[in-house]
């Protein structure tokens, strides 16, 4: 059994080519004080030393509760937020070291779908223009007629009527808008899409439609997804591997089936136990261990293991020793000394 020695030690996988490597990523946001001269009085440790990799064709789930750093991780990969520390290596290139022009070319390959279909589309632009804009910006399809044809094609691929190109976002439902967001991401023919809570704002019947669409597109265009979400049932359904985050750190990482059948970190166990299953008989038979307390502030996270303040299995050493990710079974990494 191998043991990772430091945060930069990446859980290795034998299968597939590595598309994205995140190494020792940290993102600390300064909290400033002062009117004329701003000085940092503290830092929000949104992401605090995480490492993982995503292989071609796989969907990696990033789950956790609000404030655990999952969305910041996505934004750092896209270079929308400048990482404080660590490397984002995409297809062999460290994204934080390349020039603006090179980064723009890289962004054709990496796209993002956001959570809120209401605020992520410009209300003053027609759907067709929203979808065509990235092609225009990146100079991919200079010919306007061809761009329009491509927009029609993308709308059809995403299950929308091509006539919607002439409509405005407010004329569409939440589910339809999310399909527009997906069409826009696909317009660049990307290979990697970051889905940041892409189905969370949708009603269940619509959510299922969009989940199926994401699955179909993955198949059709050989896409790789980083699927950031808080809904564990959806993550289990869509993802091949899952990383669980808590207070800026990855506490557990494993193949989807392994993680959900055999969760080893007390936080993952608590999360799974908290998710209600839509079946009264199953619910009546289940044991519910409700984890106590609230998530501590990321400004001043607990020393030692970040989960020890709420952990039912904590021992004295958890208050001082930071547990590293250890591979306890093949491909199953856990950051807990008691697991």
């Amino acid at each position: 059994m191998s043991v990772a020695e430091s945060d930069t030690n990446i859980p290795q996988q034998a299968l597939g080519d590595v598309l994205l490597q995140v190494k020792g990523l940290k993102k600390h946001f300064p909290i400033t004080d002062g009117i004329l001269v701003k000085r940092a009085v503290a830092h929000v440790k949104a992401v605090d030393g995480i490492s993982f990799e995503v292989r071609k064709g796989e969907t990696l789930g990033l789950v956790g509760e609000s404030g655990c750093g999952k969305s910041t991780t996505g934004r750092c990969i896209l270079q929308l937020d400048q990482p404080t520390e660590g490397e984002i290596i995409y297809d062999g290139v460290d994204l934080s070291t390349i020039s603006r022009a090179e980064l723009n070319r890289m962004r054709e390959r990496i796209q993002v779908i956001f959570q809120d279909p209401f605020s992520s589309l410009n209300p003053r632009m027609k759907i067709g223009d929203i979808i065509a804009e990235p092609m225009h910006v990146h100079g991919i399809e200079p010919d306007a007629a061809k761009r329009r044809a491509r927009v029609s094609e993308l709308l059809t691929v995403c299950g929308l009527n091509p006539r919607f190109a002439d409509r405005y976002p407010h004329e569409m439902s939440g589910g339809q808008r999310q399909r527009v967001g997906i069409a826009r991401a696909l317009s660049m023919r990307p290979e990697f899409i970051i889905c940041d809570e892409a189905v969370s704002a949708l009603d269940v019947s619509i959510q299922a439609q969009v989940i199926n669409l994401l699955e179909d597109l993955r198949e059709q265009f050989n896409l790789t997804y980083l699927f950031i979400a808080h809904d564990l049932s959806v993550v289990r359904h869509l993802c091949h591997r899952v990383a669980v985050m808590y207070l800026g750190k990855i506490v557990e990482l494993a193949e989807s089936d392994e993680l959900f059948d055999n969760p080893m970190h007390p936080y993952t166990q608590a999360l799974l136990s908290a998710v209600p299953v839509p079946d009264p008989d199953v619910e009546a038979a289940r044991e519910h261990q409700v984890v106590k307390g609230e998530i501590p502030s990321p400004i001043n996270p607990p020393p030692g293991c970040v989960f020890h303040t709420r952990c039912p299995k904590a021992v004295a050493s958890c208050q001082t020793d930071v547990p590293s990710l250890r591979e306890l079974r093949p491909g199953h990494w856990v950051a807990c000394t008691e697991a």
């Binding site: 019947s205 299922a208 049932s233 289990r236 359904h237």
Partner: peptide, 25 residues
């Protein structure tokens, strides 16, 4: 029936395709 078939469940085998309700409200 459609609602119940639309949600992925933690207690059921993974990988089965969801059966959404077509259209919108």
């Amino acid at each position: 029936l459609g609602l119940l078939r639309s949600v992925p469940r933690l207690d059921q085998p993974r990988g089965e395709r969801l059966v959404p309700i077509v259209g919108h409200p």
